[in-house]
């Protein structure tokens, strides 16, 4: 299959290694990954901050980028951004009186899957060790971010994948369904409440004794790991895609987690003459 990657703005700019991990997992299954170059953001930040009109150009850009590209299905390593495509983009277009754009947004959304959803539902992965070669010999816990959980109904897809990773031990997170307190601009418009919420989340992660919390949304992880660091907690976060991408031949080491750059082994590839600028 030809799979279009919607990296999402936060992964593209802050967690490029999560996008790369997504690519590596899909390529391993024999699929071709393309990156529609026009892509930007899903518009969620604007919409959730009340800037519906301001979101319109962002929505239009996404719909154009993913309508003009040639692919079978699209994937994003984020439950929240995928949910936004179906839930918010058509609403924005309709609120601004653009029914054609709304239909286009619905069509793009219907072809776009969250990573675990794509792997389990479409690509038939039920054993990450055997089908993806995933190897990550560590104890971790898992936080199901709200929009994947409640808007997409991902259910146990991510944890089923994690449990099938070679060497991995998954410890249940108490009150896992509680929001981590990120909430987009809520995080800085209501910093005190957001901080109280993440306090509770960090304590719950600490209580698992794993120190490492996996998840499917980098935005929540930026918030959780940043808050943990501020509080002097040892808790770290890791994206589901990074765990699935880790193999015996190319394992992700724990001391690599903190650096957000693309791992050196992949970054040292000599740029082809035409591509470098």
């Amino acid at each position: 299959m030809r799979i279009a990657l919607f990296a999402t703005c936060i992964v593209d700019a802050m967690y490029p290694k999560v996008a790369l991990a997504t690519v590596r997992v899909l390529e391993r299954l024999g699929h071709e990954v393309v990156f529609p170059a026009g892509q930007g953001c899903c518009s969620q930040m604007h919409v959730n901050s009340g800037y519906i009109e301001g979101a319109l150009p962002v929505v239009r850009n996404h719909v154009e980028a993913f309508t003009s590209a040639d692919y079978d299905v699209a994937v994003a390593p984020s439950g929240s951004c995928v949910a936004s495509l179906g839930h918010q983009q058509p609403m924005v277009a309709r609120a601004c009186g653009d029914e054609d754009l709304a239909r286009g947004a619905e069509e793009v959304a219907a072809r776009t899957y969250e990573l675990s959803e794509l792997l389990v539902d479409v690509l038939g992965v039920d054993n990450a060790a055997e089908q993806l070669g995933s190897h990550f010999p560590h104890r971790i816990t898992y936080h199901p971010s709200c929009h994947g959980l409640r808007l997409l109904g991902l259910g146990d897809r991510p944890t089923r994948l994690l449990e099938s990773v070679d060497g991995l031990e998954l410890v249940e997170l108490p009150d896992a369904q509680e929001c981590c307190g990120f909430g987009g601009t809520f995080s800085f418009k209501n910093p005190d409440v957001s901080g109280a919420m993440v306090d509770a989340k960090i304590k719950n992660i600490e209580s698992t004794g794993t120190g490492l919390c996996a998840g499917g949304d980098s935005s929540c992880q930026l918030h959780m790991s940043g808050a943990a660091r501020r509080r002097g907690s040892q808790v770290r976060t890791i994206h589901l895609a990074e765990i699935l991408a880790s193999t015996r031949a190319n394992p992700l080491e724990l001391d690599e987690i903190a650096d957000l750059s693309i791992p050196r082994v992949h970054a040292t590839v000599t740029p082809s003459a035409g591509g470098a600028r």
């Binding site: 957001s194 918030h223 903190a258 693309i262």
Partner: peptide, 10 residues
């Protein structure tokens, strides 16, 4: 106020 910002990727 509540969180550190990590070192960005290269």
């Amino acid at each position: 106020q509540e969180r550190d910002i990590p070192v960005p990727p290269n």
